[in-house]
Design a protein around this nucleic acid. Structure first.
Lengths: 229, 229
DNA sequence: GTGAGGCATAGGGGATTTCCCGATGCGAAA
DNA sequence: TTTCGCATCGGGAAATCCCCTATGCCTCAC
């Protein structure tokens, strides 16, 4: 398949991959994994959303691998941005979080695949190839779940109210449970305090919580149960 | 590959390292990082506590690097076990979680160092060397915090600073970690809001915490660790 | 293709809460 | 008996929370 505008292959005919992850060790592992394949090569790395945008401009990679939990802007936000700025650039989401919580969000944001760091390295390579080929990669379990969701259509039961939170709201909810206050969240996410306050109010509504204290308890409990996996 | 009796050096005179992490990609990155040093070599890998114990028996490494969040047993439990079974085997804790939350717990469990995955790879190597040399490695920030905690506690012994809380203070600390706000605590304890505020201030002083947010995080973390024993 | 509604973002202004100063009484310890 | 730590409160300024409103996007149904 002949590609269009930007450089689809480097001089030695390899497909180029850009890595976005804020853990140097993970970048190193991933890079080695990719570079030892004879048709793939890592053309650049970034550790936050801003660097990622720049690196994409600079290198024009064939695909990007994005960790979903970055330092400032969350990976989901970066994926959404990329969807706008580079609609044809395929994105594979790499995450240590459970796919049940973040998988669907990542795909809805525009990712072409989702894989957990717990997976064997061969599966990661498989996922990369699939995404490069223009297909979608998710785990079998997640694929099954999404199918049944489609078939079931309006299955009102068994949907945790947490599912109803928007991406930003979930992010705020998680940080709340980790003990951050409104101002800290605003700084971390580069948003106005007022915006965080709005999210808190929405979360309270959606989860039917009475006040800030119930909200906090709920968030703490959820974060802990997530840690237990 | 001849196994020696115990911690010494392998045939080529390198110090041997065992990696325990449930993310294959991280293991790969770390292994490459270590193996490219000419005096260090990875002698084995494990992805959970059980495999780790076995691998240590088998390879007798000079040190172990343990991720704090494993699949089954938490890394902290593994570290405690190792402290019993191999008291002289130095352990470096590697974690993606903030050191403020887990650092102290890891060290108390017996680790000789704590480093975050966010750190640059050179720092990781530095930490490994330090721990191998029998020293303790923590970040500068964490070291400062622990010193101020010790100084602030005025207790010569290394008792947990939480021990220094009075009964009322401890009660407030626990309720804080459970998500109660000041007014609710006042009602529950039949005290003035002002009194609870005073306790909060005292706890902050005694535990050398900066602001309400740190106080909250600390309380949440403590309550959780209490739940797990 | 238009309107309804969700989402991300944020401001205004009053109600609460936190934070930094005290302060008082009461035991225990020095 | 003087000096502690502890439990208990208050004043006042600063910060935060809470309720309402608003705008610019999207998506999706009709």
């Amino acid at each position: 398949m002949p590609h269009k505008t930007h450089n689809s292959m480097d001089v030695r005919g390899k497909r180029t991959v850009l890595i976005v992850d804020d853990h140097p060790i993970v970048r190193q592992g991933l890079a080695q994994l990719i570079n030892q394949e004879n048709d793939l090569v890592v053309c650049g790395q970034a550790e936050d959303a801003h660097e990622a945008i720049q690196a994409i401009r600079e290198h024009g990679p064939d695909m990007v691998i994005v960790d979903i939990s970055l330092k400032d802007t969350s990976g989901v936000e970066l994926i959404k941005d990329l969807k706008v700025q580079h609609p044809d650039l395929p994105v594979l989401t790499l995450s240590m979080h459970d796919e049940a919580v973040y998988g669907e969000r990542a795909l809805r944001a525009g990712a072409r695949g989702y894989i957990m760091k717990q997976e064997a390295t061969e599966k990661v390579v498989t996922a990369i190839r699939r995404v490069l080929a223009g297909e979608i990669y998710v785990s079998d379990g997640m694929a099954a779940k999404m199918v049944s969701k489609l078939v079931g259509g309006t299955s009102k039961k068994s949907t945790s109210p947490i599912e109803s939170l928007s991406d930003r709201e979930l992010e705020v909810f998680r940080m709340l449970g980790e003990g951050f206050n409104t101002r800290e969240m605003a700084e971390k996410l580069h948003l106005s305090v007022k915006t965080i306050e709005t999210y808190r109010a929405h979360i309270k509504d959606k989860l039917a919580l009475q006040d800030a204290s119930e909200l906090l308890r709920s968030a703490i409990q959820w974060v802990n149960s997530e840690l237990q996996r």
